[in-house]
């Protein structure tokens, strides 16, 4: 490539201290109490990213299919834990369901993208697979966290209506359908909205990265289109699977609404 990445030397990287000083200056000037987290965060950013840089180099060089699968699975696990931790008042077993839904959506959509659309040689080329799966995962994680949170809050606030449906002889699914729809919609909406404004309000990170590393913007755009659409698909699949697995847990084996859902609403009010 004729106009490849302009490398950042260690010396140049050191100038980022200037940026930290600006942030820190504002924090101490306004006594925001953010100085310690800022310093700690800066150190962590350096260490984590440097380590990831080495790890990725190592993984790219080995390019072993099983290693890639292991890495992606680990990423799914961390993402599912994060998604569930971010939603308070959700039972802990949900992590397992979140893991299952992220695993399914990431591998399904990721495989379509790497095998059919980008089609590198070999098809499991780590340089393609890991960033792609990572992007899918990051967005699917946000989506499922939102829809999980919405499912529980809808069920709590609508407990009386769900129980009314049950007294009409509704199955758990019939009784909670409206909440499930709301939950999936809430999870998918940000992604769908981002399809509307992409490129107008901001240039997505991946596209920016490609342009900075010297790619033709028209090429970068093609990648970005693939990325946007794969993210929407992954979010949709992730939300549906997670909500589909979770709603049953809101009911007893007899098909009644869990008392904890009914009472937590009263407690909250």
């Amino acid at each position: 490539m004729e106009n490849a990445t302009i490398p950042i030397s260690n010396f140049q990287l050191a100038f980022t201290v200037l940026l930290v000083l600006i942030t820190g200056g504002i924090s101490s000037f306004l006594k925001l109490g953010l100085l310690r987290p800022l310093i700690w965060g800066t150190i962590r950013t350096f260490i984590q990213l440097v380590l990831v840089g080495y790890a990725l180099t190592y993984i790219f060089n080995i390019n072993n299919l099983f290693l890639i699968i292991a890495v992606v699975t680990l990423m799914c696990y961390i993402a599912s834990k994060t998604a569930v931790e971010r939603t308070p008042n959700v039972p802990t077993y949900t992590t397992v369901l979140a893991f299952a839904s992220l695993l399914a959506s990431t591998f399904l959509v990721g495989s379509i993208v790497t095998v059919l659309i980008i089609a590198p040689e070999p098809w499991y080329s780590a340089r393609i697979v890991i960033p792609i799966f990572g992007m899918i995962l990051g967005n699917a994680m946000n989506g499922i966290a939102v829809s999980l949170d919405r499912l529980y809050s809808e069920a709590r606030s609508g407990a009386a209506l769900i129980e009314a449906m049950l007294t009409f002889g509704a199955t758990p699914w019939e009784a909670i359908q409206a909440s499930v729809r709301e939950a999936v919609r809430a999870g998918m909406t940000p992604t769908i909205n981002s399809l509307m404004v992409v490129g107008l309000v901001s240039l997505p990170g991946m596209m920016t990265g490609q342009i900075l590393s010297g790619a033709d913007p028209r090429e970068a755009v093609r990648y970005q289109i693939v990325v946007m659409l794969m993210i929407s698909a992954a979010v949709a699949i992730g939300c549906i699977i997670l909500v589909g697995l979770s709603y049953k847990k809101l009911f007893t084996r007899d098909g009644a609404l869990q008392q904890s859902i009914r009472q937590s609403k009263e407690g909250a009010l």
């Binding site: 209506l161 129980e163 009314a164 049950l166 007294t167 009409f168 002889g169 509704a170 098909g255 009644a256």
Partner: peptide
Amino acid sequence: IPGAVWRADVHYLAQKPALF
């Protein structure tokens, strides 16, 4: 008797009316 069938036959009307 399955739960759903029972609940429709032995119908509970809550004190606070549940309206959709």
